[in-house]
Design a protein around this nucleic acid. Structure first.
Lengths: 292, 292
DNA sequence: TCATAGTTATACTAGCAGTCTAATTAGAGC
DNA sequence: GCTCTAATTAGACTGCTAGTATAACTATGA
């Protein structure tokens, strides 16, 4: 019955696309996905929690797809960047993320707002990193401004062009137009030396703890993936996988991770000899120790 | 007791700035402005109506102030445009219009949405007109794109720069930065010939598209009527009335109004102190400037 | 003085998010 | 198949919201 929660998220997403977040009542979700109120509040502590869960899963999805486009390609090639943008815009459109995000920024819910702001900063940071590859280190001081400026151009033009005509080719034209402006602006701004924001600010904005945390998450994630792979043919694979997922969630999502639980999970995992001897497991232990 | 309605709007505005539109309940407004529920619903048919009334009054205010900045100035001077922008941004900030607008776009109220969209288009149309003056007729095909692009740059940078630091000088730096990008983009885009949207679309978007002119006529008409009323007991009423009628006929009926004649008539009218101090006269001046 | 229009307090409907409970059901281990 | 536990259920309940309705009250102007 684990996927029932996923099903509820999916159903709610459909309703949100159709009617918007605000206009969708919990009762609607209950009726549409055929569960009782109690079950809903067993899964999510509130409607906002459900939304966070939804957006998180969508974001993970799109970031993975977008980063996969870079594999084996030249990161300095701006055409790859364009492809990545198109993917993201298309994704936003089909999932109505655009509206959803705007909608959330209003709700007087600080946790939700914080979460969305974090998400926007992630995209901004991604673009900044890509610009570093594309335009080179020497343009660095101007690239945060350029990233902000670029998304301003892209989003605004996108909005008005879709008012004008909803043809699918519009998207590509707008992306191309915006990128053309971008490359000129990068040169122009580097030459005149105009700067609004130092790129170092990106780190200090970093929601909580700079790239440290991000790097930590990423390492944890890859290690756990590797360990899961090792377990594939193991009879108790599911149990161990759950333990691994628990460790990840507890350390990444919880503000105050319950270390005794993590330690306990680690001990349980150690029982499985296939795991405990591996380098990955040792790295996992080391990583866990660091959080203590 | 006419100003009680205005007082309610003002009180509500304060609450909206503090807590946001959504988070302010009607009960809050009632308590804060000390009226009964019945009175509220006597004034406004709903909370949304109140918001529309508020935004309308704010918009009229800012547009008048903004257009007054152009009186007696060179409309091709970009520095005047910058001053106008600064005024608008400052106004938006102190009145929290920025948040208010975003908030409204969500509410599943079509009338309200339509109204806000109309307001945005008004600003866009204003910028387009100003760009025509500043950059010249030969850049016309690109100026709608440029207006959209410009506001994208301005708004986005404004947003992030205020996250970074709330110092009041930030606003001016961001405006300057955005305008610098703009002038380069206009040239660049005119040279490469890239176009996304034909400026003629502005007219077709116009909520009151062809009514645009009608609205202008109507406003002019009411202003002139008001001024005539003021002159009723004046010894030279007839002379002034003729001047006013001339302005109306010249601006409304002539395809190519002779602006120097209109200006001259305006100067003559200004001699009459009873007129020149009134709000109506200022609105008349602003209106005349716009036709230039 | 009196009629009218505006204002008031208050009770009411209907819908919302979220809590709580008691009864039912499904699944895992034996 | 049996049992125990945990998930699930329907529905009552609280406290909030927007908006309606009404009967009593008050200011104003003829």
């Amino acid at each position: 019955m684990k996927d029932r929660k996923q099903k509820v998220i999916k159903m709610a997403h459909q309703l949100f696309i159709e009617k918007g977040f605000q206009a969708t009542s919990i009762q609607d979700i209950l009726d549409y996905s055929g569960i009782a109120k109690g079950t809903f509040y067993n899964y999510f502590s509130s409607k906002n929690e459900l939304l966070i869960a939804l957006i998180k899963s969508l974001y993970q999805q799109i970031e993975t797809e977008r980063d996969e486009l870079l594999i084996g390609k030249d990161p300095t090639d701006i055409e790859v960047f364009i492809k990545q943008l198109e993917l993201q815009l298309e994704f936003n459109r089909t999932n109505n993320l655009y509206t959803l995000f705007e909608e959330v920024m209003i709700l007087n819910d600080d946790e939700l707002k914080q979460f969305i702001r974090k998400s926007h900063l992630r995209v901004l940071r991604w673009a900044y990193g890509r610009f570093l590859s594309i335009f080179g280190e020497e343009k660095k001081p101007y690239l945060l401004d350029c990233a902000i400026t670029f998304f301003g151009i892209l989003n605004h033009n996108y909005k008005y062009n879709f008012v004008a005509e909803k043809s699918p080719s519009t998207l590509y034209k707008v992306v191309r137009y915006s990128v053309n402006r971008l490359v000129k602006i990068v040169d122009e701004v580097a030459e005149s030396g105009e700067q609004l924001l130092r790129p170092e600010l990106l780190d200090s904005w970093a929601p909580e703890g700079s790239n440290h945390k991000k790097a930590f998450q990423q390492e944890l994630h890859t290690i756990i993936l590797a360990l899961k792979k090792l377990l594939e043919r193991n009879s108790e694979a599911r149990k161990y996988a759950e333990l691994l997922d628990f460790i990840y969630d507890e350390l990444v999502d919880e503000k105050e991770p319950r270390h005794f639980l993590v330690e306990s999970a680690l001990t349980s995992l150690k029982q499985e000899i296939i795991l405990s001897k591996t380098d990955e497991f040792k790295r996992l232990e080391a990583l866990v120790v660091k959080t203590n």
